[in-house]
């Protein structure tokens, strides 16, 4: 117990003594992890938006007016029931001519020249959400068969598929970037700790001469690295959270693209990043220290020095 307290005390004394180097290590972790965490947030925003777009309308069937040109007066209702029964369809919603006009007015509000049209030219439609976006061709084909009632079929599937592919690529890039930056954090910590140890190499050699074991020397340095890693990671998580929430607030009125990432997501990934910061600090310290402990064992370069 006494030894553990001594080692913890040693770590804190060393942190206090080497403020500049400690600040450098924290900054190294902070920059790397901010970039890594930022990449993850961007990735999450893309994922949320892709998901949101995928949950939108996939297929729209514009209909000929019922009761005219040989279209039975109940043709729309019959087709809607029919479509709702198809396996590929998750949901189907009927939009009447009147609703289409309301929608049109909302869409082009304030643009008088566009609103000056005959509302009866707007067709009724069936808006379809698919079980699986990949089934859009089959649904389009089936609707195209209904030549009497279906005027035109449009689908957003191609765009969504392209978006999905893009999202997949961005996901891989984002994760890859996060991993690369995470690894660079470890290397940066290792170099910073190595610098700190280099400044204290005489001290390490003296400790070894007095009989300190490698672990006795290592533990305070590992604790230092861990504290630096957690401090840097905390700053990184806080900065990205602050940036992300500010961005979300700024983009609240922007309906097409969501910029807010859930707080739960932040909490779980934030904790993971703190743990990563701690691990990066420990691994970096181990890497930085190993060479000097080897030398102090008398197993380093076998060169004569004042024999």
């Amino acid at each position: 117990m006494s030894r553990i307290l001594f080692l913890i005390r040693e770590a804190f004394v060393s942190l206090r003594r080497n403020l500049l180097i400690v600040a450098g290590a924290i900054l190294a972790v902070f920059i790397s992890l901010t970039l890594a965490f930022g990449a993850l947030v961007v990735n999450e925003i893309l994922r949320i938006n892709t998901l949101a777009w995928q949950q939108g309308v996939h297929v729209i069937a514009f209909l000929n007016d019922a009761g005219e040109n040989g279209v039975p007066s109940n043709a729309h209702e019959v087709l809607l029931e029919d479509v709702r029964g198809w396996d590929e369809v998750d949901q189907a919603r009927y939009v009447s001519k009147a609703e289409a006009w309301i929608e049109y007015q909302e869409l082009f509000a304030g643009q008088e020249e566009l609103l000056d049209i005959d509302p009866t030219i707007l067709p009724a439609s069936i808006r379809i959400e698919l079980v699986d976006i990949a089934l859009h061709n089959s649904v389009k084909f089936r609707l195209d068969q209904q030549t009497q009632v279906v005027r035109q079929v449009t689908t957003a599937a191609d765009s969504i598929e392209q978006l999905q592919n893009l999202s997949r690529v961005l996901n891989v890039l984002g994760l890859g970037l996060a991993v690369a930056l995470g690894l660079s954090a470890i290397v940066l910590i290792a170099n910073t700790i190595r610098l700190a140890i280099y400044a204290r190499r005489e001290e390490v050699a003296i400790m070894k001469l007095v009989g300190a074991s490698n672990w006795f020397i290592r533990v305070p340095v590992l604790l230092e690295g861990m504290i630096e890693g957690v401090a840097g990671a905390t700053l990184a998580v806080f900065t990205v959270w602050l940036g992300s929430t500010s961005l979300a607030r700024a983009g609240e009125g922007f309906a097409l693209f969501r910029l807010d990432v859930g707080q739960d997501w932040f909490l779980s990934w934030g904790l993971l990043f703190l743990a990563f910061g701690a691990v990066a600090g420990i691994v970096g310290s181990l890497m930085g220290l190993s060479r000097y402990l080897r030398d102090a064992d008398g197993t380093g370069p076998d060169t004569p020095a004042g024999f």
Binding site: K208, L209, V210, G211, A212, S213, N214, F216, D297, T299
Partner: peptide
């Protein structure tokens, strides 16, 4: 190697 500290003590 791990016993060297014990010698030095």
């Amino acid at each position: 190697k791990w016993k060297i500290p014990y010698l030095r003590r």
